[in-house]
Amino acid sequence: MLMSSSERLAVLRYEANGFRVIAPGTHVKCAVTGEPIQLEVLRYWSVEHQEAYATCTVATKRLAEVD
């Protein structure tokens, strides 16, 4: 995915029912793959580990490793 120069990394606080924007931006990075995830499509994260994941498969694999 190509990112424009106007896009910047957001800092989020991941919560049980959503996330809170700490520093505004357009995307976060997947904790496993490093790929950018636009905030509009962010669906998978860990409250405990405060990490975002690109897909359900990536999230499941990561959480199986750390738990």
Rank of each mutant, 00 (worst) to 15 (best):
A23L: 07
E48L: 13
P24L: 06
C30N: 06
A23N: 10
Y53N: 04
W45V: 00
E15W: 06
D67L: 12
E40H: 09
M1P: 10
S4H: 08
T33F: 06
T60G: 13
R13A: 04
N17W: 04
F19M: 00
E15A: 11
Y44K: 03
T57Y: 03
A64M: 12
L63H: 01
V58P: 10
S6Q: 14
A16W: 06
T57L: 13
R20T: 13
E65S: 11
S6E: 14
F19G: 03
Y53I: 00
L9F: 07
M1T: 06
W45Y: 03
H49P: 00
E51W: 05
Y14A: 04
R20N: 09
A64Y: 11
R20W: 09
N17R: 09
R20V: 03
E35A: 15
A64L: 09
A31G: 14
R43H: 11
L42Q: 10
L9P: 08
A54G: 00
E7Q: 15
H49D: 08
M1E: 10
E51V: 00
V47A: 04
A64S: 15
H27C: 01
G25F: 11
R62G: 09
A10P: 03
V41Q: 14
R43K: 10
G25D: 06
T26W: 07
V21W: 12
A59E: 09
A52D: 01
E48S: 12
E48Y: 08
A16C: 01
E51A: 15
E15L: 13
Q50R: 12
P36I: 07
